[in-house]
Design a protein around this nucleic acid. Sequence first.
RNA 1: GUGGGUGUAGCUCAGCUGGUUAGAGCACCUGGUUGUGGCCCAGGAGGCCGUGGGUUCAAGUCCCAUCACUCACCCCA
Length: 418
Amino acid sequence: MTFIRTIKGTQDILPGQSHRWQALETTIRNIMDRYGYKEIRTPVFERTELFARGIGEETDIVSKEMYSWTDQGGENLTLKPELTAPVVRSFIQHNLGGQSPINKLYYIDALFRRERPQKGRYRQFHQFGIEAFGSEHPEIDAEVIALAMALFSNIGLTGLTLKLNSIGSPECRRNYRNAIRDFLTPHFDELSETSRNRFEKNPLRILDTKIPHEIEILNDGPNVSDSWTEEDKTHFNEVCALLDAMGIQYELALRLVRGLDYYTRTTFEITSTALGAQDAICGGGRYDGLVETLGGKPTPGIGFAAGMERILLALGEESSSSSTNQVYIVGLGDAVRPTVLELAENLRRNNVATEFDTLRRSMKAQMREANKAGVKYAILIGDQELASGQAEVKDLSTGDQQKIALDALVAHINSLPF
RNA sequence: GUGGGUGUAGCUCAGCUGGUUAGAGCACCUGGUUGUGGCCCAGGAGGCCGUGGGUUCAAGUCCCAUCACUCACCCCA
């Protein structure tokens, strides 16, 4: 009989950790609100075809990482491996573009990819992100990036690097693809097997290589910037100028090609020095053709996705306690139980976080528990208190104790400093 | 899918070149005289030493296999 544990690459968020997630989520929602982004929630699964068309058949995500199945009705379904395609689908389906020329959306959600887990990579993981539809202008690029940076600094992440690039318009990409092929043809024999495969399917991705020899070859190769159209160039320069104006530091990364097919022009990535090999905390870019690809009216869009597990990893373990209890009621003897419950309920109804013993433990054990729970006050009720109608209220930090009439307890507790 | 590392108490780990009832710290529980927490002291509970085989008089320790976890490659958040 073997115990059934979590699926590889998934994890429980235990009570001692959940407050960290809550804090992160709260910050995200606050910042989103401040920047005018509204939450959108989409189903955990979608038609497989949505991802195949949206992300690209040749991408790793679609070709080998999706959790897909055929349901009893014969439909091909998939647990969402990323959120841009579902959000775009929703945007089109509900004609959000028709209701407002600009739509700024955000999400916090769980995603699924069947990869080999490692530090900062899980099969079920969480991302928050934004998608802004409707503007083709650099201002929105700059706002999206600024929001990401503001959010990270707000939660106290340091050691971040913003890497910025533009992979240009579709024409530019086409030209650049050819330029890369032309440049690499004489070096073809020196390339690795994966790079040779990419040579045909997606030569831009060869730029992602980490093999020193290939990096060396590429150093003399053409840059994307050589293939930019005038408009691409202007757009990129304006994005840079706006970031400069906001005092946001960035690094030009002309080799930065994101793995998803839908990107156009601006792409960016934010990495952290606090992580392992998987150091990208946030990645995003512009996808001006995607809405149309998925069957909507041509609509420019830009967004990013940030990995929450990686953020929490980079933040490290803080020693902040998650205790919220304020009062612990110590009851002594069988006779006081109804009074303890009544009192606890009254306090709780008056917004006082209250705890009491449900194990019928000794007074000493209850006091120890109160101490461990980190409450400020303990209320002691035994037979004597019941008889006199006065409970003992003890300040656990000072040890001071005073008698308070039972019917005045709630008011008294509310008047105390916490 | 490929490679490396690690599996001993709830957690972090000791256990030397194979040798008798497998240890520590933290956490947990109970006490330290009647109904008062923390600190201290005493005691207690908790281990198929991942699993299966093998070598040996003898295996937590050596060998093989297997599983799990983990890190890395690929790629990505």
